[in-house]
Design a protein around this nucleic acid. Structure first.
Lengths: 343, 343
DNA sequence: CTGAAAGCGCTTACAG
DNA sequence: CTGAAAGCGCTTACAG
């Protein structure tokens, strides 16, 4: 039925081991003539090695898992950010001869099982909270290299790759401050257990400190478009002195702009908005969003190369990688309107 | 090192076969007491079956491939449409006990090899042209059930799941016609080898026929946002009599609106725009896009259940599935402005 | 209800 | 440069 190594060996009149060496590119151990003959027969018979047999025998699967939280049992919703990472991870992996097993994780407790059942050679965690990563443990993590994207977790079993969230937020806030804004709202998720958000809040505050100002306006919201719309609708009412908003995600910022538009609040005339991510989408909306750009391609590529390195070296790389960010100024920010003293 | 079936068997004082039966839920063949004991030991020792060994022995991998075209060697860029499908496919597969191998395909010729190397139990093709699917052949396709999403290909080795593209386009055009539009542009990719686009063009024309009108304005563009912007910029100039555009994809329609905005052409005042897909994004842009909604969740769920059915029954389901669509009227369409006779 | 044996298709030391 | 043997961790008939 299926063409196997043995079929090739028989047809070529050599041992299975020799065929194996040819197929795996160990040409140093085989004479050129034999290599040629075997390759010809492989092509003729259309031989494709069995990945299961190979991974069983070699104890290496050439499979890397990409683990993504699935909100509930029912859905795996990928944000634009995660989609971009996913696409780049697949590409980097493929170039290195690995395959991608995509798996939604309904409960972080499934992670160890996920790592082992497919004898994954490594895994990338995308979108988990630091607290969840810190809680990870057990024998599986010691064996399988695990890399967490956008993580500041302390777990020594994992390594993180992330953008320079601190600097990104500082740039965003500094941009608004230098335009004359003083009452700036920080809109992001409850940051206690999310390193990324904590860093961005630190950076935001640092910009105020740099300018000799102090600041405390923080609105806690989730980061979906809908959350943004809800916040945008009540923004001018709830925060009458606020002239600008820094949102921790583009999709949130875009929602906020939609809410503001509904409420008849002009952007950037009455309210400036800055996002974080620089999604493609952010250049499609009106007004075009000023935002902090992170290099998603580099983030994904670094994640893969760090992981592959850890898979080869046995010893995990000690230091996480932090990638540069920069501000993209577009049309959603401007100097504040002349101050209206409403109270 | 790793806990194996044999370890459990030894610890429980039973044969490997009995453990195997317990682990695989064949409780009918094992006494309740034995089941309980084995399950306790499995939990105690943290046994996780080896997927490679299992798939090698059982000749079934419980792995389904999702094959997506990779524009070039360098990237796997997932459109919002494909991202939504991907997320739903993963979810449906996971619920059925299957895992998802995501693979970018740089050249359709790789497909047969991809199907076999991982002994995939089935595969879903997402985003390939009908011509590419028709060209598919070889022994692999006979063995592995393959399902193509959005395909009208004739290849008997594959089955298709798609939305009712004909009706969708007909609804869109009828909406514009009943609003008073007569000069409507059809903007989409060169449709010759894309069944989906051909169907939409047929539906578009049918709406004109329904109304006793005839029509021929077709602009051939790719369907990225950038293509849309380029078209939008020159639309009012190149097609002076045109008062509305039907684009075969939301992302294209959104680009067209951006290009129109740049050119100072009011939407929907001077030009109405209708898209196809009803992406989340389409409700975020200004003006909100009128579009044809397809049920992506149903499309993905149907794809998986059809595929799983084919995997079980050996015989492939004969008839493709076509899903209902409906029109979502939002703010990008209106009655045409009073006719300006410019020639 | 339970078990011993063969085999899935490879790779890995070990010899020569 | 090449090969024979053992083994990876399961499942599948086949017996009992």
């Amino acid at each position: 039925m299926r063409v196997t190594l043995k079929d090739i060996a028989t047809a070529a009149g050599v041992s299975m081991m020799t065929v194996s060496n040819v197929v795996n590119g160990n040409h140093a151990r085989v004479s050129p003539a034999t290599v040629a003959k075997v390759q010809r027969i492989v092509a003729e018979l259309g031989y494709v090695p069995s990945a299961s047999a190979r991974s069983l025998a070699a104890r290496t699967s050439h499979l890397v898992g990409l683990l993504v939280p699935a909100a509930d049992e029912d859905s795996l919703t990928l944000s634009p950010h995660n989609t971009a990472i996913l696409g780049q991870v697949e590409r980097s992996l493929r170039k290195s001869g690995y395959h991608l097993l995509l798996r939604g994780i309904a409960d972080p407790a499934e992670i160890p099982e996920a790592l082992r059942s497919w004898s994954l050679d490594g895994a990338i965690l995308l979108g988990f909270l630091d607290a969840e990563i810190d809680r990870l443990g057990g024998t599986e993590l010691g064996r399988v290299p695990v890399l967490a994207i956008d993580s500041y977790a302390d777990n020594p079993l994992t390594t993180g790759v992330r953008s320079d969230d601190f600097t990104g937020a500082r740039l965003a806030a500094a941009h608004l401050i230098s335009s004359g804004h003083r009452e700036i709202l920080f809109a992001g998720p409850a940051f206690v257990d999310v390193g990324v958000v904590a860093e961005r809040l630190r950076g935001f505050r640092a910009a105020f400190a740099d300018a000799g100002l102090s600041h405390e306006d923080v609105a806690t919201v989730n980061t979906t478009h809908e959350d943004g719309v809800a916040l945008g609708r009540r923004l001018a009412t709830d925060f009458p002195d606020t002239t600008a908003v820094f949102a921790t995600a583009d999709i949130l910022a875009i929602g906020i702009m939609a809410g503001l538009a509904e409420a008849g609040v002009p952007v950037p005339g009455r309210m400036s908005v800055v996002g974080f991510d620089n999604l493609d989408l952010s250049a499609y909306v009106t007004p075009k969003l000023t935002t902090v750009a992170q290099d998603l391609t580099a983030k994904a590529a670094n994640a893969v190369s760090l992981l592959l390195g850890a898979m080869k070296d046995e010893r995990r790389p000690a230091t996480p990688v932090t990638l540069d960010v920069h501000l993209v100024e577009r049309d959603s920010t401007a100097a504040p309107a002349a101050r209206r003293r409403t109270h």
